[in-house]
Design a protein around this nucleic acid. Structure first.
Lengths: 145, 145
DNA sequence: CTACTTGCAAATAATTTGCATGCGA
DNA sequence: TCGCATGCAAATTATTTGCAAGTAG
């Protein structure tokens, strides 16, 4: 998801290219390991270079970014949401129960075959799924007890 | 998970058997389809027969119940958590994106084989996982658009 | 010019905490 | 009796909304 492409997306959908939106985009594209960010973290990142942006602008634009498919919304049951750039390739996460660090895994356990079977049996139209693995990362494992 | 067994669990772990705890337990065991309940819903259920219980008592005891493994905590990204009686048999949920209704499915896509591979590759000790399918239930499907 | 955006402040909603009182073992 | 539990009230945290002023196109 390149920046130019996103700018184009904004244009096509009638959204204005405001400096705030560009900053938010940069917060994600500049986040090289694509570690999922909370709204608060996005805000903190931007404040360094653009001090006047409000947290509410972050929230409002995260919704816009979501609707355009620029980012994904994730929930690691911390009482808040996290967001990551939509890389296009489907993946899930490992989440450390102690330090909260997350790591992408390419592995996805859900197959179209299962999908169809469940849809038919349960009369339920499946649109998306989420799969998270919780445990202890290498570092926390040692000090777990 | 029978009530007597839970009472015994409380005893063994040094928790007192208060009427509030018994009410909370009943809220779950009496919830026959095991539809996951929010803290607020548990509170509402109990208030009918035990009007003086505080929502904070619910919250504090949900944590106790969780620690004892009596209930599971679920998150369907509604901005709040839900809880269900721990039936002992592992399962996941279908969640309707429109009306929010949930349905249990026995299906679990995650196999020990995958587990071990990921643990080794990522040096991550997996303790639990969650898997949710989001989509539209039969009723909402028709009026979706 | 003007509809879309923003910042501010205040509102909401879920959950947590401090504290004095209460009650189960 | 004694320490865990509870109810109340207030605090916290995440998120949302109303509104007047600002700005991109």
């Amino acid at each position: 998801m390149k920046e130019d492409y996103v700018i184009e997306l904004f244009r096509k959908n009638g959204y204005k290219i405001t400096p705030q939106r560009q900053e938010i985009l940069k917060a994600f594209t500049g986040n090289h390991d694509n570690h999922p960010l909370s709204a608060e973290e996005v805000h903190q990142k931007i404040i360094e270079s653009y001090p006047n942006i409000g947290i509410d602008t972050i929230y409002r634009n995260l919704i816009v970014f979501l609707n355009l498919g620029i980012i994904n919304k994730l929930n690691f049951r911390e009482g808040k949401s996290r967001y990551e750039l939509n890389s296009g390739k489907h993946h899930h996460h490992l989440v450390c129960l102690k330090c909260g660090i997350t790591e992408e895994i390419d592995y996805c356990p859900f197959k179209t075959l299962d999908w169809e079977k469940i849809e038919e049996e349960k009369k339920f139209e499946i649109k998306k799924h989420s799969f998270e693995l919780f445990g202890y990362c290498e570092l926390c494992r040692e000090k777990k007890h």
